[in-house]
Design a binder for these strands. Structure first.
Length: 278
DNA sequence: CAGCGTGTTGAGGA
DNA sequence: TTCCTCAACACGCT
């Protein structure tokens, strides 16, 4: 599921769910390795008796704000899914990793096919969590996501633009799908050196990123794989993808075939005609 | 059977 | 030291 718009969709749903303002009465951990900085027992003690105040987001992290200044950081990585329901999704029991039981009979269920996801517990202001501190400005939430900041970041690197915008320590929230979509909309070849972007390119990059993310959130994100469980809410933004996953299909602008190349180990789709090498 | 993957980290080499 | 590449994580789909 998860890049910025998909994570935003998850928290939008959870913020309207019966989990809000409910006390946690217990936990069950089926896959221990998801818990990164705590044990099964300490996790249970940490959460029990606390109320869920709200679900927040920074980059691709879900931040569950609890009473007594506690936070639970959830990262979905490739295929994590977080739902608030009364009952277990019986078609997906095999991938159930964590259950957080609430006083009203609902639960937060965390499912993860590949079990790459992570849970961290943290007491204090969520901005002080070490992982958040090392992250660049959030592409939707941070005032720091601006021309001056990006100009500085892009100027001081020899890397290509796609690698930089995927680097969460530089910018938080952009993943492999939206990186390709953003660069297509900017008409910039993903192999272009980041330091070749001028002010006009950077201004355009910011407005394109903002509008693509707004639209993707409106359509509840992109759902790519057909095997997602029935309990999953599916997004619709995949209808609007111009390049991602469209290898050898005609470009929506010029009809030339979309090409597929590897950049920094990630599959990359782009139009060689529309996207200029800077 | 082999290759691939919405993400991130860490090891090892240049 | 710094930068870059690649494997690894675990599993299911094509």
């Amino acid at each position: 599921m998860p890049e910025l718009p998909e994570v935003q969709t998850v928290i939008n749903i959870l913020n309207k769910s019966p989990a809000i303002d409910k006390k946690i009465i217990g936990t069950r951990v089926f896959i221990k390795k998801i818990l990164k900085n705590t044990s099964v027992n300490k996790f249970d003690i940490f959460l029990k008796k606390e109320k869920i105040i709200s679900f927040n987001r920074y980059g691709k992290y879900i931040i569950i704000k609890l009473t007594n200044n506690k936070n639970l950081f959830v990262h979905l990585r490739m295929e994590g899914k977080l739902f608030c329901t009364k009952d277990i999704d019986k078609t997906n029991v095999k991938h159930l990793c964590i259950q957080i039981m609430l006083e009203n009979g609902f639960n937060l269920f965390y499912y993860d096919t590949r079990m790459f996801g992570t849970f961290h517990i943290f007491v204090g202001n969520s901005n002080d969590f070490y992982s958040i501190k090392s992250m660049g400005p959030d592409a939707m939430l941070s005032k720091k996501f601006n021309v001056d900041y990006l100009k500085n970041i892009f100027k001081h690197t020899k890397k290509n633009i796609k690698t930089i915008i995927l680097d969460q320590t530089k910018i938080s929230g952009i993943g492999n799908i939206y990186a390709d979509e953003i660069l297509f909309a900017c008409k910039i070849n993903p192999f272009s050196k980041a330091n070749a972007l001028d002010i006009k390119n950077i201004k355009n990059f910011i407005s394109v990123t903002t509008s693509i993310f707004k639209k993707a959130i409106l359509y509840k994100g992109t759902t790519i794989f057909s095997y997602m469980s029935s309990a999953n809410h599916t997004g619709n933004y995949q209808k609007y993808l111009n390049v991602y996953g469209r290898n050898n299909e005609p470009c929506n602008i010029c009809r030339k075939k979309i090409v597929y190349r590897k950049i920094n180990g990630r599959g990359t789709y782009f139009c060689e005609k529309c996207q200029k090498l800077l």
